[in-house]
Design a protein around this nucleic acid. Structure first.
Lengths: 152, 152
DNA sequence: GAGTCTATCGCAACACGTTGCAATAAGCCA
DNA sequence: TGGCTTATTGCAACGTGTTGCGATAGACTC
């Protein structure tokens, strides 16, 4: 409660601390990848992140990027889900946990924040006993306007 | 009500009729792929189906298999979703529509039939207005025993 | 500062899935 | 039956992501 506020600690700084606390190493590549992810506010696919990292450092390889992203996930700094097309999409945990709903008709995509998703998660728990992970909640269906169009 | 029962019409037969009704062509490859899918009751990944088709006909190529699977989906005979690892999993629509819930802790996977999923779909509709597609409902979370273990 | 240990990196090869294009063959008509 | 049209196939190349392995270089000790 009375700890220092530190509102502007960067992702890279916090990640470095977490990595080193686990006895792991902090490298230029990790710094770079953390910076790129932090600059990609919200979502980015694996391929996009690889490309952006390579712009900053052409010697970086995809395996390094993906392994670092795995590390970020393991440490709880990021998470990923598979989009409609199977591509991986990463996002920072700093961005509040949320799910996605994709319309199979028009391709519209809406985000589900925790409040909106709460009754859905509750229904899942009642039906299955599972505590569903909002960050991996990726639904597909028909949006209201496509449903209305189909009904006509 | 009084129509002939015909309980043993194969997938391939029905598919052939549907394909030809659209003015498209019926080929040996399509016959083969339909047979393989029908023999893979329940689920199979794209790669598994490709492999099984190639056992029966080594000259078949992945592109043909995937294109045929797309066709089956278009005609409503099959559908696919992306599993936890991003791999495509196909299943026949003959198998009743269902979703999946995957445990991130122990890897357990349970199927959600229409009855079980109904309150979940209703909650999704109330929250978003979307009519979610049960076949694409692929949830991740923690199963009851992993939750109990974590609580300890 | 030098030496040691080993986590991490880059490379190369692989797996899965997609796409463009020329060759083939299914289905139709005369 | 023979010929025509064009959907479909197989090939080859590509995009995305993963894995194994030898080389490199952090981090730690003395």
């Amino acid at each position: 409660m009375a700890t220092a506020p530190e509102p502007k600690v960067t992702l890279a700084t916090r990640l470095q601390a977490a990595v080193q606390a686990r006895g792991q190493r902090w490298t230029e590549q990790r710094q770079l990848i953390a910076d790129v992810l932090a600059a990609s506010d919200g979502h980015a696919t694996g391929a996009e992140l690889v490309e952006r990292v390579r712009v900053a450092d052409p010697s970086a390889t995809p395996s390094t990027v993906y392994r670092t992203l795995d590390l970020l996930e393991e440490l709880g700094f990021a998470s990923h889900h598979h989009g409609v097309d199977g591509r991986e999409t990463y996002h920072l945990e700093e961005v509040v946990a949320h799910g996605h709903v994709h319309c199979q008709g028009c391709g519209a995509e809406v985000e589900l924040d925790a409040d909106l998703a709460q009754p859905i998660l509750a229904a899942i728990e009642r039906a299955t006993g599972y505590a569903a992970d909002l960050d991996h909640l990726s639904l597909q269906g028909r949006c209201p306007s496509c449903r209305a169009a189909a009904a006509r």
